[in-house]
Structure formats: structure tokens, C-alpha cells
Design a protein around this nucleic acid. Structure first.
Lengths: 120, 120
DNA sequence: AGCCTATTTCGAGTATCATCGAATTATAGG
DNA sequence: CCTATAATTCGATGATACTCGAAATAGGCT
């Protein structure tokens, strides 16, 4: 993962409203959630929600799929995992940094690792 | 971890310059790196660097320690791990992520950094 | 077509961020 | 005390973000 993309994704998550939005979507699971339902949960104006949603979609952290007149939103687990893997790589560059659990096993699929100290 | 703190830390990392700065510090390991040396590596004006450094320090992702006239900066691994744990928790809230124990009871959960990233 | 619901885009106001030179503080040494 | 070095704070400028109401678009129903 390029550092610019990681930064863009982190910035997208680095806003309380968007992080709450993302959390709602994650907890909705693979079924996803209609924009309207998200709005009910977050209780913010539709235009504000749409604005934040777009940031998450633009950075690939969330996917949108149309179902008739409603749009279903889903958190993109692979992209989040790639991001977590990237952060874990950064964090684990130092030898004395022991992983909490399997976090560093994540990046493998997406090539997030930049060849630093692996298997930390 | 509160969602506001997580958002603040993510926002702090969500800037290419700061992410590069953080990466430099992580790779410097526990020995840390003097601000001046970081500046040489990043090749940005001192005042700009100081500004970004402050953001990372304010969000507790980086620690500063004075040694005579120079300031040594160190990445704070525990705080980064807590952040990664929080993100992993968010990610693993969904059933298809094979949550360990009561991972779905996220809302009040604060056990961010304790091994629940299992099969995610 | 005409209408209805769901959602986005537009536009504008306010707020926060990023950048960088100049001035300032902090510490050590002569 | 005076000077030198290290790093921060100040101040100003341009850019970008956040918010939200109003208007526009998309899709389905009658």
C-alpha cells in the first residue's frame, strides 16, 4: 500500500462522525445498511451524511450498491484489513514490539507489507 | 478507547507528512531520533516539522524527551497498538469475521488491545 | 406521464489545517 | 554574561474541511 493511500484512508476515518458512520456499517455486517437507516441511527442531516459517506466510498473503505431506490452501504473488510496491516507493519518495524495477536498476519493478502521486519 | 480519541489519532496519522514522520520514528526504534535528524530525513522546514510533531505528541502517538539541547522523539508503541486494536475490534464486529468471545458487544467494549483480532 | 421516495449535489458560511519565515525559548559552554 | 545550537511558537496566508438547507437526480409505482 502506498503511503498516500494509507494517509487518505486514515484521514477518512479520522473524523468522529465518519468513524461512527463506519462503525455502524461494520456492525451491520455483510448485509449492509440502507443510507436512510444509517441516517436514523446517526441522526444527522442527509446531506451531511452523504458528504461523509462519499469520503469513505472514495477511499474504498465502504462500498455502495443500489437496490431499487435505496442504496445499500457495506464496510469493505478487505480494505480495512489492508490498512490495519499497513499500520501493524509500521508499528512492528521495531523488534521489541510484540504483536497483540494475529494482527500482523493480515497484510499478506494485499501486499501491504513493505518488506520490513516480517513475522513480528 | 473512546471514539473521539481514536478519531483524533487517526486524523493525526491521516496526513502524508505526518505518516512519513511517524514511520521514520517507528523505524528508529526505541532509541528514538532527535528532531534535527528527523528533519534531515524528511527535508522539510523546522517549523513545519514541529507543527506536525506536536500533533502526534498531543495525540500520544509520539513521545518527546529532552536530552540536553536536543529533543529525542519516540513512537509510542502501546498507543499505536491500542489504536490498531480498536480498529480491529470495529472490523471484527461482524459475525463472518469469527469473533472471539463477545466481540459483538463492542459498544461499551474498551478491551481494544487484548487479543480479539483472532481470525480476522 | 406524473408522482413519490431515496439519496446526492450545489452553494455558502464558518472553521480548521498546512506551510513557512521570523522571532522566541531552552540548554550548554566559554 | 555572552554566544551558539536545538527546537518551538508566532503570525500570516492560502487551501481544505464541516455543516446543512435547497435544489436536483435516480428509480419504481400507478
Amino acid at each position: 500500500m502506498k503511503i498516500e493511500q494509507a494517509a487518505r484512508q486514515l484521514e477518512a476515518l479520522g473524523n468522529t462522525t465518519r468513524l461512527e458512520l463506519y462503525r455502524v456499517l461494520v456492525r451491520a455486517g455483510t448485509a449492509g445498511l440502507a443510507v436512510g437507516h444509517v441516517q436514523e441511527k446517526l441522526a444527522i442531516p442527509a446531506s451531511t451524511l452523504s458528504h461523509h459517506l462519499r469520503r469513505l466510498v472514495d477511499t474504498e473503505l465502504v462500498e455502495r450498491e443500489r437496490q431499487a431506490t435505496t442504496l445499500i452501504c457495506r464496510a469493505s473488510y478487505p480494505h480495512m484489513q489492508a490498512l490495519i496491516g499497513y499500520l501493524a507493519d509500521e508499528c512492528c518495524a521495531d523488534a521489541n514490539c510484540r504483536p497483540v495477536s494475529g494482527a500482523t498476519a493480515l497484510p499478506a493478502a494485499d501486499g501491504a507489507s513493505q518488506g520490513r521486519i516480517k513475522g513480528c
